[in-house]
Structure formats: structure tokens, C-alpha cells
Design a protein around this nucleic acid. Sequence first.
DNA 1: CTTGCGCATTGATAAGCGTCAATGTATTTA
DNA 2: TAAATACATTGACGCTTATCAATGCGCAAG
Lengths: 123, 123
Amino acid sequence: MATRALPVAQDRRPGERCCDLDLPPAISTAEAERTTADLEILANPVRMQLLDVLVRKEGMVCVCDLESAVPVKQPTVSHHLRLLREAGLIHSEKRGLYAYYHVDRPALDQLRARISTFLASLG
Amino acid sequence: MATRALPVAQDRRPGERCCDLDLPPAISTAEAERTTADLEILANPVRMQLLDVLVRKEGMVCVCDLESAVPVKQPTVSHHLRLLREAGLIHSEKRGLYAYYHVDRPALDQLRARISTFLASLG
DNA sequence: CTTGCGCATTGATAAGCGTCAATGTATTTA
DNA sequence: TAAATACATTGACGCTTATCAATGCGCAAG
């Protein structure tokens, strides 16, 4: 009895043009790429742990402390810190020998908001 | 004046052991890797658009329809559909010549919940 | 100034990922 | 049976990413 407008196997002949209810890509490719970038900056265990530490420690954290919180060597830590910095999620300040990092709260909040919006759009 | 327990540059001598308030990795490496996997399955424009189409079309969608919704060739579509399938987010059913895909709502909801929890933990 | 230290950068390596042409496999139509 | 169609799989390619040893650079203690 199916009253659905959705074409099913039985309704479709081989070679026939697919669903004319042209599924609009809904999410544009450009939009999908932006959201992908948002997800990718978080999609790494080391960056995730670094961010986590920086979030929990309200103040500034020096690199050597961050280093001891993740299972990779110092150059790799610097590498991921750079990516997070270039993404605008954290900032650094040099004091003497040490470099202190801290989270950019507004930036992080905006990132979380964008991802949440995306997740909601999948509902 | 600073009454904060957090060591700052001035408080720390070179060569000194870093913050003894051992920042517990808070998020374990294993946990971070699991969450990373959750993010990664979504962190691709094609998979994102495929999922989006499948979510918006309640019923089953055949591959040729999905194909026309993304800017890549058929083998690439099959590739990403396979990844989504292996992640348990979608399922397929063959009817005659056509393969129909549909979202696994509970699985998708759980994924979204896990990511939301993670995002909240960054608050 | 020289040495030691914290951190960034470089350069190399390896592994992973996305993409597509070509091919395989059912299945359906002629 | 033969030809056509939908989709999956294979195999190859290029690009990106993560990682670390080695090195560079600035600051600070001696």
C-alpha cells in the first residue's frame, strides 16, 4: 500500500534517471569542508590531550608541562601546539626561557558551537 | 601578591622539575584515541554530505542518488559508504540491481552523544 | 663570553587517506 | 544466451599527516 513518494527498487527501471526529487546537497561542499576543518583540528589524540590540559589549567602552562602530559617527543608537541595556535584556539607568551600557553576561550567556545550546530543538523 | 599556586616563569628556575602538580592527562590516551575515531568518521566532506542526505531522506537511498549529491566518482562514493558502514552508522540492502542505504539512527545518535559529551568536557 | 636550558624549526621518513580507472560480480532485460 | 546496468573491489597514484633526530635561536646563570 506504500503511499510514499520515495521511489523504491520496484518502481525504478534500469537506466532510468535517478530520483528526480533532486536531493539538494543540503550541506554545500564548501560548508562541509569548513565543518571538516573544525572537526579535524580536534581529531587527534595529542591535540585533544593538550587542549584538555590547557582547559583544565585556567592559567598559563609551559611547554615542558604539556610535554609530560602526552606520549610524544618535544618537537611533536611543538608541532601540534603550532596547529592549535594557527587554528586560533590557543595563544603563547614567552617569559624568559619558558613559553606559556593558554586557551582562547571565545575561540574554543565558537568552535564547539559550530560543531554542536552541525551535530544538531544531523538530527 | 600573587596568591595563585600556579608556578609562573619567575617562580621556576631552569633545570627545575616542571610543575609537581602533575597534570593528570585527564583524558587518557586510549580515551582520546576513541574520541578521535568518532570525530574522524565525520571529518570528511563527502562522508558528511552522504550522511546528510541519508538523514534527510527518511527512507532508503540508492547509490546512484548519493552519487549525484557529492562531487566524486562512483568508486569513491562506494569507498566512503563502506567506511560509514564499517563504523556502523549506515546499513545497506540490495534490491535487484540497486543497493539502498539508510542511516542507523541509534548508532548515529550515540555517536553524536559521545561527541557532545566530549565537547562539554572542554567547557 | 660561555655554557646550559627551553622551545621552535628543519628535514627526513613512514604511514595513512582520498581519488579514480579498470575490472569484477550479480542481476536484469532483450 | 548475450548485452547492459548498478555497485563493489582492486590497484596504483599523489597528497597529507604524524613523528622524531638534529639543529637553530634566544635567554639566563656562572
